[in-house]
Each structure stands twice: as C-alpha cells, then as structure tokens.
Design a protein around this nucleic acid. Sequence first.
DNA 1: TACACAAGTTAGACAAGTCTAACAAATATT
DNA 2: AATATTTGTTAGACTTGTCTAACTTGTGTA
Lengths: 220, 220
Amino acid sequence: MLSYTEENYLKALLMLSFQNEERPEAGTNEMAAYLGVKPATATDMLKKLKEKELVTYQKYGKILLTELGREKATAILRKHRLWETFLYEKLDFSWDEVHEVAEQLEHIQSEKLVNKLEEFLDFPEFDPHGDPIPKANGDIPAIDKVLLSEVTAGEVCKVVAVKDTSAVFLQYLEKLNITIGTKFKVLEVIDFDGSLSIQIEKEEPRSVSMKFAESLFVKR
Amino acid sequence: MLSYTEENYLKALLMLSFQNEERPEAGTNEMAAYLGVKPATATDMLKKLKEKELVTYQKYGKILLTELGREKATAILRKHRLWETFLYEKLDFSWDEVHEVAEQLEHIQSEKLVNKLEEFLDFPEFDPHGDPIPKANGDIPAIDKVLLSEVTAGEVCKVVAVKDTSAVFLQYLEKLNITIGTKFKVLEVIDFDGSLSIQIEKEEPRSVSMKFAESLFVKR
DNA sequence: TACACAAGTTAGACAAGTCTAACAAATATT
DNA sequence: AATATTTGTTAGACTTGTCTAACTTGTGTA
Ligand SMILES: [Mn+2]
Ligand SMILES: [Mn+2]
Ligand SMILES: [Mn+2]
Ligand SMILES: [Mn+2]
C-alpha cells in the first residue's frame, strides 16, 4: 500500500516522463520543483521509492519509474482524470476548477469505486482538458495532436487538448471562446516573436502569443 | 484547517454524543476505542483539540465538543452521508460497502463539491442506512424512530434506519429481505432472552435475537 | 585541463501521529 | 475507610514527511 505522498511522487514522475517521451528520466531538482518541495526532501523520498522497487536510480543519477512504478502511477492518473471528468460532466465544475479537487480525489483507495465511476461516466476517453484517460489495464488512448506553435499559416485545426492546465490559462481560453473541439484557421505566423493570428469560424481574427501557441494542442 | 486525523476525532466525538443524547460527553477510553487507537494517543490529540478550542475538557474529566467543534464535525458527517448516498444511488454500491469508502471521501476539502453533490443527488434527507444528512447550515432532519427492542407484541412497524452499520449485520438484513422501508408485525416477544418473532408481509414468521432488535430502528 | 556553477546528497532538526510502559486520579467494592 | 479496579495521563520512543545548511559530485566553459 502506498501513502498519499508516495502516490504524488509517482504521479509526478509519470507526468515528467510525458514531457519528453524520448528521454523519460527525471532529475531530483526537476521532481522537487514539480511537487513544490525542496530537493533534499525529494532525495529522501527517492530512497524510499527505490527500496520499494518503484523507481530505478543511483546517487547523482537520473530517476526512472520501474514497470511496477509506472503501473501504480498510471492507476493514479486514471483516477485523477476520471474524477476531473465527473466533476466537469456531472457537477458543473468549470475546467479550471476540476484539477485541484481531483488532486485529492485521486488518492481514494477503492478499485470498485474507480471502475464504477468510469462506467457511470460511460467510459470516457478524454478528460476535460483533452488528456487521455488510462484504461483499467493501463492502456492510454492515443491522440493525434500537435502544438499550435508547430502549425503553419493557412492551416485549419481543431483544439484537442491543453498543455498548460493552469486556471489562468484556462480562463483566458474561456474568454476567447476557445474550448476542446473549437476549430480555427491560422492566418499568419509572425517570425519576429512567434505570435500568430487565428480566426475562429466567422469571428474577427485575433492575435495570440507564442507562449499561448505552445500551451495548446490541436489536430490539423 | 483541520488535518485528516483531527477530523476523524471530531466526527467520533459527534457520533458518541448521539449515542446518549442527554449526556453527550465522552471519555478518553471510549473515544480511543471508537477510533481504534490507544488511550494515550487520544489524550495527546485531546490536548491539541482543546488548544484549537474544538473541545472543552480538563484532565481526568469528560470531553465535550464546543460549538465550533460541533459545526466542524457536523460538516464532516454531512459529507460522509452524502457520499454514501452517492455511492449507493449512483454507483450501485451495496449498503454494506458504502461506509468504508465514505470514510475516505468525507475528508475531501471543497465546499463547492459537497454542495454540488447534494444538488446532484436531489437534496436527499437520509443516507442508505436511514441516517439523517445534515444540511449545509448544520440542521439535521429529525426522524421519528424507536429501537425494535422497544416495540411490544402485536405492533406493526416499518424499518427506518439501522443502528449497527457493520457489514455483517447489513448482509444479514439483506438475507432476511429487510431493508429501509420494510414493514412487519411483531408477533411475540420472549421475556426469557429478549428475542422476538416477526412477520414480514405474507412471509413465514421468523425469530430474531435481542441483539438484532437493539440494532434496528423502526417507526411504529 | 582547470574551475565555476548547477545538480544532488547528507546531517541534523522538527511537527504530526502513533505506540508501550509506568504512573496518577477517580470510582467502585468490601 | 481502606483497598481494588477502572480510567486517564505522562514520559520517552518511533515513523513519515518536511525543512535548512553544509557538503559532494558532475558538467559546461574558458
Ligand atoms: Mn494528489
Ligand atoms: Mn486534466
Ligand atoms: Mn474518516
Ligand atoms: Mn451511513
């Protein structure tokens, strides 16, 4: 059985491994920063996780989830995203509110609960942010997505997920009338600062920053 | 902000206060037994709760929730019973399974969540065990109930709640086809051992023990 | 290659929650 | 009233998760 805290560390490592798929190892400082703790604290926990064979790592080396660790972490992520979906779909939470509460709910221990919840939600594939919900067996649905910053002028695309799930970004998207499923055309890309001009349906064209474009996943 | 553990102590004190309404104070050992910890542990926690003005008590004396303590405890109980209702109504949990999971869910911190959940469940008044669900303002719906052991021969009554919520008792009730709302007639009360003979609708009469009769609440 | 700086670890401390063993107070029994 | 029993507290220890401050290792740059 894993503690609340151990679970958070495992999920953090999984999330970090998604950040650059071809090099899924994390560093101590990186992990500590993600969790909002000091590096010394992360080092201590790492020893415990290694002891439990949930990660492989050696002093001053990189951290990698073991198969077992990845399974546990995936199960927590599954719960997180199912709860987010529940809050959004059934309890009318907005997509910038769901994360914080799911952060707590993901630690509830009950196999039956998570599976019944999934059934109750009609086996959703994606959470309110467009992120794939792992299946009970650990499989993660694939999505065909690319960062908006990689799209060139003239292309039409559809929003499929957000990379940044911070409340401030999500609220900005709401203000722009952009949500999962929104379609728009990229009119122009400004080389100078990476900003781009987009046009949603029949609306007025508007300009968004490079930071914006690097925070949104779309499908061409 | 209260810790998970502090919340459990407060709820325990509230539950104990319900056990004999006219004398709502609890003792250290009683409380420790209820929570499954040692008396020494309970004493330590008591000092902390007193420090936070959630209980009144002095060395070797009885423990009583303060107004503030009662409010906090009631809020936790409210969450517990709403979650039980959710699990039972929406996720097809049986009434002997809900308690354990609700024990975890009751600690989720989100005002919005509990209120939205209540709305989603259509403002239920009672949980799957027939216990009243406190309102957001702290009010607790009243129920007209009496222990089955206080019913005399010849009376007809309806099950309104269970006093004992252990899985073993609840499963026994299921086996007997008794649930909240079941009506039956008390045919005979045996003075010798307090057992009684009851008849549900058109079923065969059956005998139940005094322990059984002291675990079930009915309405005459 | 040397050195500076970034990355990571260790030592020692602390708070929360728990325990055991020993003790003290209150209550019940004779 | 004296004593026995129950009830509750204290002291000291342990675990988990966290920190700060000091130290060590690894790496990139000159
Ligand atoms: Mn979490
Ligand atoms: Mn999400
Ligand atoms: Mn609890
Ligand atoms: Mn209940």
